[in-house]
Nucleic acid binder design. Structure first.
Lengths: 429, 429
DNA sequence: CTGTTAGCGCATTCAG
DNA sequence: CTGAATGCGCTAACAG
């Protein structure tokens, strides 16, 4: 039904191979032939058959981006950044060999996440980018890790963006690896120190993209031999297979934020956190607690009671969480939120209870989403360079940028002090 | 490198054909053989090669969802709904033949839109869903239409969701078609009448999905014959090729909203609209003007001056637009916004100017996004059943639901009166 | 520079 | 019910 290469070849009076060559553009073709072919392509409105092409070349131009919530700007910004890198890649005329960057919405469900990875593996995706916090259930972690390793082993580039790196073999059962210094150290100071700033790398264009790590076994026989093995025998540990990570310094950011509140004089600081099983939630909470502990053991002890976990990172969770917090600890003079969206919900709840922000209660968010700056009052928050991180993840996924040392880049978080935080009101009476 | 069907077959001691059959599940296989195969699949962690499968079967399991702004919940809700339909489809055990629903972010750019459609066509996507308003540039419309018709002709299901149907041949150069009664009639009444309510259809499961309209020419010879023709000779007009539409009653909704304001007593109603070239903007504006005209010619005449076009459907546009509006027409007692997000920006700007909502100025949005109900004040708006519309679009894209009569379903808009609108303050002096 | 020749991995006849 | 054979449309050697 659809037009094929052969049709174009016939119309241009050349062989199919020649057509293929002008379209891929990676092979010398005479100018005259070239334009003749191009014209035929145009006249016939020919569009390459992706599946056939992928089959023959053993590579596809699909890049999957997994997000936890497609309606959340946090992911929108990252995903958009990843996509923008795909386009900038090669702007050849005609049917430029652009990558098809697509986003898959897992809704935060581990099952969906796995399903999408399988689907992408089936499509032999060129790369997969997993964004946002991971769920920490051990069973799921193992399954996820397996899938990712298999993907990587099959030549799909895997990049994590905004989630911690995969645990290394030495840490089985423990916490995720922390290859840089941005993790759970004593943390006496308030400023976030990140492993590696967002440096501008020389864009290392691979001359033959996709030809680096793939196809370990070249001849058919070798391949068969490898395939006869069971998975355990095949893969090795999977380390060094090139699962890259662009991590956020959530701990450092939260620490800075809490330190800011403490410096203002707050002592009863509530925390409306995200769902407990997510890495992002845990890391931010750890940073918060670290700052409290650094200030005084007493504050640290009371932290548990002042923490409320919401069901998600949405406004509703913030609203509900704030009400619960006020019920549990009406004395709070400041509330930290899981993120900016949650913070807005917190503000709404506070206002409804007749409390002014920041006069009665200070509120702070996280992420510095676009709306935070012009909310009223403007939100004090922690800025994460979401776009830059996403762009970098995109470049790593394309192999257009050298991997960071150790495969992990931690991206700096920056405290943004705005109008929603102020010193606590002096006690009257 | 990756495991293949043949490997599984070898390990299970059967032929490749048999493995293929147990995996597709659409062919009788002995129970014993079946389980043996399944075990081999499991042991080898076999994952079907999508490209190969797609090539052989001439069909893929990719479904593309195009959105204008991935960071906008409006699209998030619709896209999420479409995706949810993909999963519910067939929950077979093992590697269930789920569709890979994937969202592509055009950023509202016509060029990107076309690029993505080409990419999806290249992948031989099973279906494509275009969501949200279209850009009305004639050149782009023509190009877009061409692409869609070719997609449809190639067997890809095309569904429009939240945008008007493709113009019919009789209307070349004119407005998009309006097959139902919800368009630009005199509009004397305030209530939105939609073409067809969101009825619950009997879910018509096609026994052999994908086997309906495709493969018009069965034998190789027939196909060659067809392909030898030029596109113009090939496609026909493209009408009846099954480009389905789930349209929103933007006009009716806007009319109802403006009527509500007029009924409250407002006479100076400002409008912070979206970008002028988008269908959604135009339709909502038309509904607004229709309601003004229905009330009195005088109001209609002044409408132009009270309309400000923003650069997008985001908060910033609302903020800027409101400031511009106040500069141009400080007498406004009510402001309509392009959508809820814009409305929030409008509120922020008004507050900053010292105007209270709704005491000094009433504000209303559009769409009824989740945050609108618990904004402060709660936003008066027009509810569009985004999730239902997306779900329906998903079912249509899968061929799981009978197409609406005429290929177009218009979805009702419902006025939601909340706290952000009130009667205008009586003039003092 | 260009044509010819083999597959890529799978679905699907057609025989058994 | 199962196996062998064929071809989907394209790319990648390998000759010319």
């Amino acid at each position: 039904m659809a037009v094929t290469l052969a049709d174009v070849a016939a119309r241009a009076g050349v062989s199919a191979a020649t057509v293929s060559r002008v379209l891929s553009g990676n092979y010398p073709v005479a100018g005259a032939t070239r334009s003749r072919v191009l014209r035929a392509v145009d006249e016939l409105e020919y569009v390459v058959n992706g599946p056939a092409s992928a089959l023959a070349a053993a590579s596809s131009d699909l890049v999957g981006i997994l997000v936890n919530d497609i309606a959340d700007p946090f992911f929108g910004i990252i995903a958009g950044a990843v996509q923008s890198e795909m386009n900038g890649a090669e702007g050849g005329p005609g049917a430029g060999p652009r990558k098809l960057a697509v986003v898959c919405n897992t809704g935060g469900s581990p099952g969906q996440e796995l399903t999408y990875l399988t689907l992408l593996q089936r499509q032999r995706a060129a790369a997969v980018v997993l964004t946002g916090g991971a769920v920490e259930d051990p069973e799921h972690s193992a399954a996820l890790e397996g899938r990712l390793r298999r993907l990587a082993a099959d030549g799909t580039r895997v990049v994590l963006c905004g989630r911690p790196p995969l645990r290394t073999p030495g840490e089985r059962g423990g916490r995720p690896g922390k290859p840089d210094g941005a993790s759970g150290e004593p943390a006496g100071e308030a400023v976030a120190e990140a492993g590696e700033p967002v440096r501008v790398w020389d864009t290392v264009r691979a001359e033959e993209p996709g030809a680096e790590g793939r196809r370990q076994a070249r001849t058919p026989l070798e391949r068969r031999a490898v395939r006869a093995l069971l998975p355990e025998q095949r893969g090795g540990s999977g380390e060094g297979l090139g699962i890259l990570t662009v991590a956020f310094d959530n701990r450092g950011g939260a620490r800075a934020l809490t330190a800011h509140l403490l410096a203002l004089g707050h002592r009863a600081v509530g925390y409306v956190a995200g769902p407990p099983e997510r890495t992002t939630t845990r890391h931010r909470l750890e940073g918060h607690r670290a700052a409290l502990a650094a200030h005084s053991p007493g504050l640290s002890a009371g932290a548990e009671r002042l923490t409320v976990h919401g069901g998600g990172y949405d406004r509703g969770s913030g609203y509900d969480g704030a009400l619960e917090l006020l019920r549990r600890a009406p004395e709070v003079t400041a509330v930290l939120a899981a993120n900016d969206t949650v913070a807005l919900g917190v503000c709404a709840a506070l206002r409804e209870r007749g409390l002014r922000v920041p006069e009665d209660v200070s509120v702070a968010g996280f992420d510095d989403l676009p709306f935070s700056a012009d909310a009223s009052p403007a939100l004090t928050t922690v800025r994460l360079p979401l776009y830059e991180a996403g762009a970098r993840a995109g470049r790593l996924a394309l192999g257009r940028q050298a991997p960071p040392p150790g495969g992990v880049a931690t991206v700096r978080a920056e405290l943004m002090v705005r109008a929603s935080t102020a010193p606590p009101r002096p006690r009257t009476g």
